[in-house]
Simulated assay, not measured.
Amino acid sequence: MNTIEKQYQLEPNRKLSQIATLLILAILFVWSMSTVQFEAFTANGFTIAKNILLGLIQPDLNLLFNFSSNGILYLLVETMAIAFLGTIVGAILAVPLAFLSASNIVPKPVSFIVRLLLIFIRTIPAIVYGLMFVRVTGLGAFAGVLTMSLTSIGMLSKLYVDVIEDLDTSILESMESIGCTVFEKIRFGILPQLSALFLSIVIYRFDMNLRDAAVLGLVGAGGIGAPLIFAMNSYRWSEVGSILIGLILLILIVEYVSNKIRAKLVRG
């Protein structure tokens, strides 16, 4: 018991730092709340919120089960296709960039420059990329695919690098000792170890891209976002309810399947 008491007394007193941290957080919370204008909430806003909830309860079933190109099912498939294709393109392009930014693979100056490029790519929000590509390619799914590809590159490269730099470097050193080039080290010494982890990361990014693809439709980059905003602007709440129900079900199904696949990859 004496040993425990002595150990407890030797512990540094962190009460002052904890109180200071709580005080700083409280000040930041109060300061952040000062930017929220509660008077902006009007009776009309509450009415719209009520109508959206009613739309979820009483959706337009004809639209929900419409199999034409204007139906919810077609738009959901288009949204999923945009997210999937954008993820695949981004995942492929991210692989060389990740290896070029890994300090244990390439010289540090090269790694530093590529990392700066990836930081710049990640800095710009997806909605901004969407607006840019809509101007370049016009309205439609192609702009959405390009946006998803570019936004995926930034995040996937960063996650790839974290995995690459955690590798056992003894394998690379042994390959270097027998005269292997950088490409050979990547192809035969690294990729076989990383394929499962990379695939798990790609599936995780696909989950995110599916949500982003729905939002990109708001700026005309294809998918279900555009019909959603049009229905809301026209106060067609039953259509809004149908679109939201379809979107929620799609995301739940994809997330369930992707979690199962990722769990198997991690175990296997």
Rank of each mutant, 00 (worst) to 15 (best):
Q9R: 11
F133I: 04
V89C: 13
I82T: 06
E255G: 10
P109T: 11
F99A: 05
I203Q: 01
V134R: 06
G268F: 04
S200L: 03
T137F: 15
L250A: 11
A214R: 01
L118E: 04
L252I: 04
F84R: 00
F206G: 00
A143P: 01
T87L: 00
N259P: 05
R211S: 00
V114L: 02
L244K: 03
L28Q: 13
S234K: 12
N233Y: 06
I24W: 06
A94L: 08
I119V: 15
D212E: 11
L56A: 02
L53A: 08
G130A: 05
I92P: 04
F65I: 05
L100V: 10
L197Y: 13
S258L: 07
D166K: 15
M1N: 13
F142E: 09
M232S: 07
N51Y: 09
V240R: 01
F188A: 06
V95H: 03
V77A: 12
V219K: 04
A214Y: 02
G220H: 01
P59M: 01
T151A: 14
K260F: 12
A49G: 05
K6M: 15
S152T: 09
Y129A: 05
I27W: 13
T123C: 14
V219W: 02
V95R: 06
R14P: 09
A231S: 07
I201V: 14
N104D: 10
L167C: 10
Q9E: 14
T151L: 13
I245A: 04
V114S: 04
N62F: 10
A196T: 08
F29P: 07
Y256N: 11
R135V: 15
P59F: 01
G217I: 00
D212M: 06
E39I: 12
E173S: 04
F67D: 08
A94I: 06
L172F: 06
G217Q: 03
V219L: 08
T151K: 12
I203T: 02
W237A: 05
A81Y: 11
L244Y: 01
F183G: 07
Y74A: 11
L250K: 04
E11C: 11
G90T: 08
I261A: 12
G268W: 08
P107T: 09
S32V: 14
G222N: 03
L210N: 01
R135K: 15
L247M: 11
